[in-house]
């Protein structure tokens, strides 16, 4: 027989809650997908910086297409790959607003490669949250530019080979040499120990924009248990064991630290 525990409701204190920058809309993501964590981290940063009412979310095409329903900000939905161009148009009209895009690897690294590189080259004062899960999720698991060599997808049924599918693209390494980039980091949410530093990088990226330092991008190495064919925990392990060797975590560019007040040095 179990004992009944009586909780004193009067003494309860809220110590953990949904960030204000997220709506109550239930998210449509698969079990074990790290989109939810990424959304939460971005929303916490928006709350902490007090910018919710001047932030504009740009949803792209992919599993996160509904980002405009989840972030409680003004929002716009962009065509596949074009979010940085849409962000450019908005930011040039509304320089006082904080504009961020939320894009997957198919969106950013395949069809939208030109848009993101040129936005960075122009030092466009926007922030890009780049979700890299090495697969096209929404269209049911096809090869992405970031798919690992040997990785099986629905369009690389025997595993990605250089002969048939080419090499994985490392976006951050490629962007390191672009002078317009003010903040550039690759992070993950594969284990609790990574989550805080991921949030720190996201915050730095938004701070770069707030201070008008130029283009900022945070790549988040993410999971796709559904199209990797792995259980959620296995998927997180897969990130650490297979993804991170190809996509090492690093702060590549940080012009925020040391650029006036609030700089705290490299992560």
């Amino acid at each position: 027989m179990s004992e009944t525990t009586h909780i004193q409701l009067d003494n309860l204190q809220v110590i953990y809650k949904k960030p204000d920058a997220l709506t109550d809309t239930p998210m449509r993501y698969c079990p074990g997908c790290t989109h939810g964590i990424a959304h939460r981290l971005v929303a916490e940063v928006i709350d902490e910086l007090g910018i919710k009412h001047r932030t504009i979310t740009i949803a792209s095409v992919g599993c996160s297409v509904y980002a405009y329903e989840y972030f409680d900000t003004d929002a716009i939905q962009a065509a596949h790959g074009r979010a940085p161009a849409v962000a450019t148009g908005i930011k040039r009209v509304r320089p006082d607003n904080i504009v961020f895009t939320y894009q997957g690897d198919g969106d950013l690294a395949a069809i939208g490669l030109a848009e993101v590189l040129h936005a960075a080259s122009r030092a466009e004062n926007i922030t890009v949250i780049f979700i890299n899960n090495a697969v096209f999720g929404m269209t049911q698991g096809q090869m992405a530019p970031t798919t690992l060599l040997g990785q099986k997808t629905t369009t690389t049924p025997t595993g990605r080979s250089v002969e048939r599918g080419g090499h994985p693209i490392n976006i951050c390494e490629m962007m390191t040499c672009i002078p317009g980039v003010a903040y550039l980091a690759r992070e993950t949410m594969a284990a609790p120990k990574y989550v805080n530093r991921a949030k720190r990088s996201i915050k730095r990226a938004f701070e770069a924009q707030i201070r008008g330092l130029g283009f900022s991008l945070v790549e988040l190495v993410s999971s796709c248990p559904t199209w990797w064919g792995l259980r959620p925990l296995e998927a997180l392990k897969h990130i650490e064991e297979k993804m991170l060797p190809q996509y090492p975590l690093k702060v590549f560019v940080d012009k925020v630290s040391g650029a006036g007040e609030g700089g705290e040095g490299n992560a």
């Binding site: 740009i58 849409v86 450019t88 930011k91 040039r92 030109a114 848009e115």
Partner: peptide
């Protein structure tokens, strides 16, 4: 813009911003 694709999407963003 870097292309007409980008140009029209910049137009889309600017128009949405009023």
């Amino acid at each position: 813009a870097e292309s007409e694709l980008a140009a029209i999407n910049m137009v889309y963003g600017a128009a949405a911003a009023g």
